[in-house]
Design a protein around this nucleic acid. Structure first.
Lengths: 227, 227
DNA sequence: AGAAAAACAAGAGCACTGCTCACTTTTCTC
DNA sequence: GAGAAAAGTGAGCAGTGCTCTTGTTTTTCT
């Protein structure tokens, strides 16, 4: 039963989110102003509280959407390559994440940046967050199945192995400890590189951060993932 | 001429910074309130403007201090190891950064997290920011001099090589392109790992993030740095 | 179809924010 | 000690998130 009212409500909510995102991009998440949104829509500021109990709830909604967006971007990049082109998939995933992050720095910061203190991600955020993880783990499983050796065969501590087991079970991919370790290391590297660039740490370091990025993901593919 | 007045001023400034840091830790950088600081000190809010022209200037000051603090921590960790214990130095540097970041998450976020929008780091911040870079580059130079081979000998693109040259010149360490690439990759990895943990991305992933961290820096030492 | 219920919107108001400005008080310097 | 410089005051501006009362509109139930 999607009454006329329910539809109007949905439109209102999406309009709020649209304006909120524009505002965050322009002024930062900390300067997100409900009153400004209300002004733009042409409605009393108090009216917005019929849609979001609090400003943080709006932010949460945006964060969840963003997780989903990242998942979509990364999935699409992965899907664009042939499944057996392991290296190509890793590069595509990496580059798509970087491109998206540079195009939406504030959104990236919403997810991977400084969290708002006292703010705890509600359970809803966990689902969408697993989307890009699934892409990564699927690639790792394919790497293992293709017989690619991890670049490091030192034993994995039992405590850590147990935690890996939890991940395996949760995502349903049977990945060896060694491939898990290498894959997570690659992921840490990717997030670190993108974070540093998006958050401006390369501003006085690299004239062309893209060169650094591309060299780095290439390096990781070879030296970390062994593909 | 450090008159009584100058000293009082210095004390006032350090008191402001102390309270600001406490407030950022409790409420986040975005909720830093000059008025609240003034209240705590017991002075009119307008009085603070005798010390900082603007709220962002206070933030800048804190950021610069934090860069310096990170530099100190990392330098100390490095200095605690024998210079020829390359692997030990890398592990010590990595662990010290993580420990410090976990103990001062809001400070870490100030430097490596979402930047305050519209805020551009003034030239003053560049100096202290080079401190930890120096530690890293010195280690890389020592690694190269010890004859450790980088784990990847694919050619480094000319464009990137030119940017490496700028870094070499600026910091005065003569490091090969290959070692540079590996070292930066290791650094990306470290920052990524610490960021993800400090910003809470491991909350529903690793029961004991320390296990993951230690395995990861070990892995990087072997597979990336080749030490 | 008419009444009751639910949702929506408005606008005043509270307590807060960064920041300015005219003003007074304190301290340093000559 | 007089003049200058620095420090502190408090009112005020324009903005914020959020609440609460009031009134309107729409949906739902009988």
């Amino acid at each position: 039963m999607t009454g006329a009212r329910a539809q109007q409500r949905a439109e209102m909510i999406s309009e709020i989110k649209r304006l909120a995102r524009a505002q965050i991009a322009a002024e930062g998440a900390s300067n997100l102003s409900l009153r400004a949104i209300a002004r733009d829509i042409g409605v009393a500021s108090s009216a917005l509280y019929r849609y979001y109990d609090t400003r943080d709830q709006l932010l949460t909604d945006l964060i969840v959407e963003t997780y989903d967006e990242i998942g979509k971007v990364v999935e699409a990049a992965d899907a664009r390559m042939r499944r057996d082109d392991l290296r190509g998939r890793w590069l595509a995933i990496s580059r798509s994440l970087r491109s998206w992050a540079l195009a939406h720095p504030s959104d990236f910061g919403l997810v991977f940046g400084t969290p708002v203190p006292g703010y705890v991600a509600p359970a809803d955020t966990i689902g969408p967050a697993t989307r890009y993880t699934t892409v990564l783990l699927r690639l790792l499983a394919d790497i293992e199945n293709a017989g690619c050796d991890p670049t490091n065969d030192s034993p994995v501590a039992k405590n850590l192995s147990r935690q890996y087991a939890g991940l395996r079970k949760r995502f349903g991919y049977d990945i060896s400890d060694h491939h898990m370790r290498a894959g997570l290391s690659a992921w840490m590297n990717l997030i670190g590189t993108v974070s540093l660039e998006v958050f401006g740490q390369f501003d006085n370091v690299f004239a062309h951060p893209a060169d650094h990025f591309n060299a780095n993901v290439d390096f990781v593919a070879t030296s970390v993932l062994g593909i």
